[in-house]
Amino acid sequence: MSRSTLPTSTRRPTHHHRPSRAPIPTKRLLVAAGILVFLIALRFATADAAPIPIAAARDAITLAISVIIESLPFVFLGIGLSIAVQLWVPTRVILRILPKNAFGRRVVLSFLGVLLPVCECGNLPLARGLMSRGLTVSDSVTFLLAAPILNPVTIITTYQAFGWSDGILVSRIAGGFVIANLVGWMISRHPNPTNLLTPDFAASCRHDQAALHGRRSRGREAVELFSRETTSMLPALFIGAAIAGTIQAAASREFLVALGGNPVWSVIALMALAFVISICSNVDAFFALSLGSTFSPGALIAFLVFGPMIDIKMLAMMRTTFTTRALVTLTSVVALGALVLGLGVNFFA
């Protein structure tokens, strides 16, 4: 039985002052210095090695930029919606229209993407906004995982690409819904879900709740929210896109395609591909269509369900909000859920 967790705002005392800009932590400086030292050491250690091919580097940069260009409009759209929700939709309205029952609330939030059809990278700021407005972590995670799949743009593009063939569309919708709600239910079992959030984000949630009672103008508040969200999201997006681009250029696509012939490895291979290429859920169906002749339907479904929920870019962005341990748990359950879905479709279809 699912336990109805209280909104985060009711769990912590509120603070009526804005946290001052925190000084750069020593730990981060040490990590940055460590990376710099590692890179310098690597440069000296590989001085005689063959240089990185320019074409591969160019491919990596092109791929990274393509991920950024594809994601950026949705990030800004998501931030805009997030600000609108945080500033202009009263908490009581959100809480009133959602079912009181935790399970029912998560089900309704799974379909919120129908009204707010943004890509997964735009859903993160929106999910952060929902948490700032008092929704529980499990509610927001359910929305975060379900919305990239259960939204009209994704559904229509998937239909355009595959129609009703092999049950890909139906499996994607049903699989996305079930996995999102499964993860939401799992998180709802946590005695203190706020512990799954990074301290910085938890603090900002508390501040946002406190700011509800403040008297600052909404315009100024919107600018501050925009500044804070872009400061959090964009570096994460750039880092995620850079990693995705590098791995795509380095990993042999032929190797992934060779795996595609095996009914089991094909599912794992496409999940790995989805994780690496970090393609937007609104267009990923057309990418998957190009793999349709090589990969099994189960592999395609795993690609279309796992990718929108978890990929390198999303993990980098989600790390701004969730602790590493929470992300490991969440990623494990989503990956296993997508794997079971893909294998099940391959076996029973």
């Binding site: 009914p263 089991v264 359950v333 296993l336 859920g337 794997l339 079971v340 294998l343 099940g344 391959n346 076996f347």
Partner: peptide, 13 residues
């Protein structure tokens, strides 16, 4: 989920 995946993997293989 792991057991289910393992079972499906086995029967698929």
């Amino acid at each position: 989920l792991s057991l289910t995946a393992a079972a499906l993997t086995t029967v698929s293989a």
